[in-house]
């Protein structure tokens, strides 16, 4: 904690958890989409998000984040209009997600190239977030660090291949958190690797070339 966590952050109101945190959840999706073109989003709001989203502008905040705006961007207020102008279809569904944190959103996104994805995360207070699921697999990261997501087949040696590559090619990179999740033995798996420093872009390309790795995404601090 430093003095600017207390006198700050600068944000668009009215609520750090329902507005600022919602923007940051949206920004995770923005990073997942990267520079591909977004066609449609279906946003499920659970718990307190579902109950108060209109009054806190949670809908606008999530959409603004998905479009790449930040928690201090004045455009948040007009996010619905901006999405219309950009030709992005959006809908909001109120549904309780069992066992989820009270401020949880699930964002299902559909891209122009036909691909799609789902991110589920919670706004846990003070603008902080926790991402719980990506494409149905459990992850756990807060967006405060640079986070590398590696989707792969659950095969022996894949983790070693990834971390060896990181160590031998980029010795300065230091892992601060590591989490592995898989759907079933031998099935789809996902590594969540939080890194202290900023990995170079080529790291992601190199990891994608590793055997049994299906995709890799770098989410810079949101």
């Amino acid at each position: 904690m430093n003095v600017f966590d207390i006198i700050g952050p600068v944000m668009i109101g009215p609520s750090s958890s329902h507005t600022a945190g919602a923007v940051r959840l949206g920004r995770v999706v923005n990073k997942l989409i990267d520079d591909r073109k977004l066609k449609k989003v279906v946003i499920t709001l659970s718990g307190s998000f579902a109950q108060t989203y209109k009054g806190h502008g949670t809908d606008r905040a999530l959409l603004a984040g998905i479009m790449g705006y930040k928690s201090y961007s004045p455009e948040i207020r007009d996010a619905l209009t901006i999405a219309d102008e950009r030709g992005i279809e959006y809908s909001f569904v109120k549904r309780d997600i069992k066992g989820a944190h009270p401020n949880t959103a699930q964002i299902h996104f559909f891209l122009d190239d036909g691909s799609e994805g789902v991110m589920q995360g919670a706004s846990i207070g003070g603008g902080n977030i926790l991402v719980n699921q990506i494409n149905g697999m459990s992850v756990e990261f807060n967006g405060d660090n640079n986070t590398l997501l590696v989707m792969h087949e659950d095969k022996p040696g894949v983790i070693a291949a990834v971390t060896n590559l990181m160590h031998w090619e980029h010795a300065e990179l230091n892992i601060s958190n590591f989490h592995l999740s898989r759907q079933e033995k031998g099935g789809d798996a996902i590594m969540t690797i939080e890194i202290d420093n900023m990995p170079p872009d080529e790291l992601v390309d190199d990891i994608r070339k590793i055997d049994h790795v299906t995709n890799a995404i770098l989410i810079r601090r949101v």
């Binding site: 952050p9 600068v10 944000m11 009215p14």
Partner: peptide, 12 residues
Amino acid sequence: ASMGKIVAAPTA
């Protein structure tokens, strides 16, 4: 409350 820009100090 009207979604203007503020400084959380310490909160919104």
